[in-house]
Design a protein around this nucleic acid. Sequence first.
DNA 1: CTGTTAGCGCCTTCAC
DNA 2: GTGAAGGCGCTAACAG
Lengths: 343, 343
Amino acid sequence: MVSSGGRVPATLESVAAAAGVSRATASRVLTGSPRVSEAARDKVLAAASSLAYVPNAAARSLVTRRSDTVAFVVCEPEEKFFSDPFFATVLKGAHRIVAAHSLQLVFVVVATDEDRDQLERFAAGGHLDAAMFVSLHGSEDMPARLDALGLPVVMAGRSLDPGAAGLPVVDVDNAQGAGVATRRLVERGCRRIGTISGPTDMAGSMDRLDGWREAMAAAGRTPHEDDVVTGDYTVEGGHEAMVTLLDRGPEVDGVFCANDLMAAGALRAIADRGLSVPDDVAVVGFDDIPVALATQPPLTTVHQPIEELGRRMAQSLVTSLVAGEPAPQHVRLHTHLVVRGSA
Amino acid sequence: MVSSGGRVPATLESVAAAAGVSRATASRVLTGSPRVSEAARDKVLAAASSLAYVPNAAARSLVTRRSDTVAFVVCEPEEKFFSDPFFATVLKGAHRIVAAHSLQLVFVVVATDEDRDQLERFAAGGHLDAAMFVSLHGSEDMPARLDALGLPVVMAGRSLDPGAAGLPVVDVDNAQGAGVATRRLVERGCRRIGTISGPTDMAGSMDRLDGWREAMAAAGRTPHEDDVVTGDYTVEGGHEAMVTLLDRGPEVDGVFCANDLMAAGALRAIADRGLSVPDDVAVVGFDDIPVALATQPPLTTVHQPIEELGRRMAQSLVTSLVAGEPAPQHVRLHTHLVVRGSA
DNA sequence: CTGTTAGCGCCTTCAC
DNA sequence: GTGAAGGCGCTAACAG
């Protein structure tokens, strides 16, 4: 408490002096080395606390060659991602685990090739000990590039980049989730079931589309290509896509949307047409974010454990960082259907 | 390109050697010092690029005593904040500016006193050059504590902590925005206008409530205390609050909600009652986040420039960090009413 | 304009 | 168990 507004930074040197021991011993105590006597330990600890000692991060990092920093990388060429609560929830989960291990989380956005190079040198410069990736589009190569630098890496969902094959992934069974959603529509008695898919350059989108296709086939349906419209995971995109779907086939009476935001947009398009949900058109979403409760009617949707996704990614990095063990190659989380009013 | 998967970290020393100059000169070139000859500069730059040299952050930080790191601090005792897109949007704006100045953004959540102490020592340890705060509840003292450490600080919205008086703030005129919203309800002909406020321990919530009160008074209305219900900025909270409002006064025909998420919940409660919006009850929200487009009907709401809020906060820190100038004490952004279907 | 000389604060062999 | 000494990679005077 001595130096509250303290202008004196207190170094290991001063702590050692105050404790009447050498710098080496003080260091041993502070890093938790076992080879120190009780007495010395007590004196050092007392001195450190009375001087409000805080180890200098840079100095430590310089010699340990670790930054105790983990990156949360958002690969977002189109910046739509941010308005999706999905993103914040993953971040929250990741932060929780990372903080519990006294690591710091740096937030990085990669949109341009310049950003990519900058991130790579950032990592090469020793700023980073590991990185987790979210919202991977197309053949994003940053996971592979950082992996090549020797950093532990993990991705939320597969990457379409061939170079990323074999890197740790945390995801849910998108195809299965989509299948459950589609089956709900079938069992409800929908005659013509369409789908609004996510961007075609994202693995998860494609898996959900496949899930829809498979479930349709399993139900003996042979969907027309007109019943598939590609969206962009936004409310507006979902609205537009639904308009298209309705224009192409006014008899559509069931729709599986690849995320809740698009489902919310679809709901609005349906209402604009004077149609009612779920009687005229039943709608199922994916994610189960808060907006699913705010729509009219509330959304029937495929729940995925978003926060846990973030936790598991962080856990994966911590495992290979702290424990030094290899990270699990693929963690797959479970989804389940939450039935509300829209289907 | 030589050492792509390079095991050789390349130091300033090696660059200098390769360029045939001293370490000092190499350093001057790399830090952009003017006092270097063309020739030397070229040789150093060539050597650096051919060796894929990346300066070691820790070493530099150790001597410059700057970390080039800015913290984005979320003071969130109740962790509801994350599901609000508001949060992600501020983060996005802040990141943009921070990245443009080659600073890194570390993401910090403060929920417990332990977190507070940890953040303080993190800052004291030289990890941080500045910090911006978001979602300030009650008398959160971290802004003041970091300020006491000598770090530039900025807050999104006022803090109720007396110690934070005088610290830089970026916000909108909440009272005015609430007033515009309320007036809309009055002009629409609503007879009994209620409000769902935000948490009472947040300055912005109280300002919006005041704005409602003032506008009511200006319109010659003397609202009953029953017409004020405190919410928590979540969809569920808004739903509950609306139920209460309707129970207490079924004649309520206008409601100002302190944010869009609560407005979305209110919409649902109204629909559950078999009432229609805006004919039976008109609703105005605050924020203008994407969910405002997803509700049925879409929300009439007070737009605030959320991303700009983040940009301005970052700008404030950059100003006092890079330019060394004092940050603007109070930046106030503008709001405006966006009329959609709900009022 | 450039090289030389000192550390920045800390961890870590290496002897004792 | 403990101290002495060296050096991580870089910048910043200080001379020339």
